[in-house]
Each structure stands twice: as structure tokens, then as C-alpha cells.
């Protein structure tokens, strides 16, 4: 089964293209693919519990795994208690793990 790691570096507040990665993730999941979104840089801004997440919420509901880079979270003062329970902080190693495992990795 095809696996995907979609790296989202853009936030939905400033970017006019905030729907692309969640939409792609949801569509791939609907086609039976295993999809993970990794939020990095300003892409972690929607990770706060009370943040407006737009289509990212729909991707979560569709069964997409959403991770957030721990360094990016810490850099922005987003502590463990601030993060939505559906989004998991991780080390950036997940990118290299994915690439080494041959997982299709796309940066947005």
C-alpha cells in the first residue's frame, strides 16, 4: 500500500493555499492510502486546541494522522497542554524515517 508523508510548512491564516494538503490527504485516504501530515514551521500554528483549523479538521476526521514538529511548537511557545489532542508532537526524524522507508514525501 502506498504511504505518504505530506509536510505542511504553511499556515492557513496567511497562506491562500491552506486547503491543498488537507484535501490531498483526505482524497488519498479515501483511496485507501496511508497518509500522514507533518506540520512544521508556521504550519504548526493551527495545532493549538482552540485554533481555527479549516480543512485540517476534516482531514483529521477522515482518518489522516497529523503530527507536529516539536521544535516548531516550542519555537512558537505552544506547550504540550496547548496542543489539540488529535495532533501529536514528534521529532523531525519522522521525515528521514519516511524517506529512508521509501514513503512518498511531499513538501508544501
Amino acid at each position: 500500500m502506498s504511504k505518504y508523508l505530506l509536510i505542511e510548512s504553511r499556515d492557513p491564516y496567511e497562506s491562500g493555499d491552506g486547503d491543498f494538503i488537507p484535501s490531498l490527504a483526505a482524497q488519498l485516504t479515501a483511496k485507501g492510502k496511508e497518509v500522514t501530515i507533518l506540520l512544521v514551521q508556521n504550519g504548526v500554528l493551527p495545532a493549538r486546541t482552540n485554533a481555527e483549523r479549516g480543512k485540517l479538521s476534516q482531514a483529521l476526521e477522515a482518518g489522516v494522522t497529523v503530527l507536529a514538529d516539536s521544535f516548531s511548537l516550542r519555537e512558537r511557545g505552544i506547550g504540550d497542554s496547548d496542543i489539540a489532542p488529535t495532533i501529536r508532537p514528534v521529532q523531525l526524524d519522522v521525515v528521514i524515517d519516511a524517506m529512508a522507508d521509501g514513503i512518498k514525501t511531499i513538501w508544501h
Binding site: 502506498s2 484535501s23 490531498l24 482524497q27 488519498l28 483511496k31 492510502k33 512518498k104 511531499i106
Partner: peptide, 14 residues
Amino acid sequence: FDDFVDLIEESDRI
């Protein structure tokens, strides 16, 4: 968009 997703699936590198 649906065909775009298929294209992604058919490609080795995106």
C-alpha cells in the same frame, strides 16, 4: 483534483 491524485499515485517521486 481526482485525476491529480491518481497522477500522484502513479508517480514514483512527487
